[in-house]
Amino acid sequence: MQSKTEKIEKWKVLNHDLYQVIEQIDNKLASSSHDLFAIVFGGFVNKAVKFLHAINVLYENNLPEEAQAMVRILFELRITFCCFLTIRFDDPKDRYERVLDSMILEKAKQARASSFGGMSKEDRDNILDAEKVVSKKYPPGELEKIKRNGFTGMTIEQRAAFSGNEDDYNVAYRNFSRNIHSNDYLERFMRHEKLRRNDHEEYIISRDIYSLRLTFVCANEIARNANNFYRLDFSRQLEFLTNRQHELGT
């Protein structure tokens, strides 16, 4: 029976192998994206590629807490991607236009918060004009939700519930968030000789297995959706990787 430390190494290898496949998927989408929907769809895939690569590099360099900050972001990307695919719209083009509209609103908010610093008068007028056009497309209540939470109009917790990822949200988002906000002092204290608990090593190993597993699940889901949606030729590779995931378990 394999030890938990051996399982960690196998998860690292699996995530590295997944990166090799999803990077090829990203390259194919980038070379064949001619419409706005494909560009937005490909944007999610490209982000998944970059975060997966970053997580792999951080784990290879023994920086697990820093890697978990990236895992938390990858998890948020995954649930937002799920919403992008599954939220129903009256008109199919509303799906990607809503993403673009939310980007314009966010850009205007950022520019206004910095008092339009570094922007020419022409750029300032352009972004404000674009904001006015977008604002007229939505009822006031819906517009406010998009401004606050992005194109889904839902908080991260609501997105997790909508996509069926509440359990991972409670771990990945809530616990890994402290790594993003630089208040991950628990691990620091637990490494201290006088404060170390008897189950310290077991905790660290279990945490890393969970983190590496979630990394694979998030990136693999995005890769499989991209492969299926655009009928790319990576089904066999992704199926092989998924079977290896099942063999590793949780």
Rank of each mutant, 00 (worst) to 15 (best):
A108W: 01
D125K: 12
E23H: 08
K7W: 00
Y210L: 12
E122A: 12
M70Q: 12
R196D: 00
E66N: 14
L186R: 14
K145S: 10
F216H: 03
A111R: 02
Y138D: 10
D125F: 00
A226T: 04
N170Q: 13
E221G: 11
Y185W: 10
I205A: 02
N243D: 14
E97L: 15
H200W: 12
K50F: 07
F75I: 03
N179Y: 14
G164D: 08
I8M: 04
A113K: 11
R88S: 13
Q24R: 13
A160Q: 01
R213L: 05
L77V: 09
R236S: 14
R78K: 14
A226L: 05
R72G: 09
W11Y: 14
A113L: 08
L248W: 05
K145T: 07
L128F: 05
E106P: 00
D26W: 04
V133R: 14
A161N: 09
N27W: 02
S163V: 08
F44L: 06
T242A: 11
F81Y: 12
D233E: 13
A160G: 01
D35T: 13
S120K: 08
E6I: 04
R213Q: 09
V133N: 06
H181F: 11
H246A: 10
L18C: 05
R148A: 15
G153Q: 04
F151L: 05
K7C: 00
K132Q: 11
I73C: 04
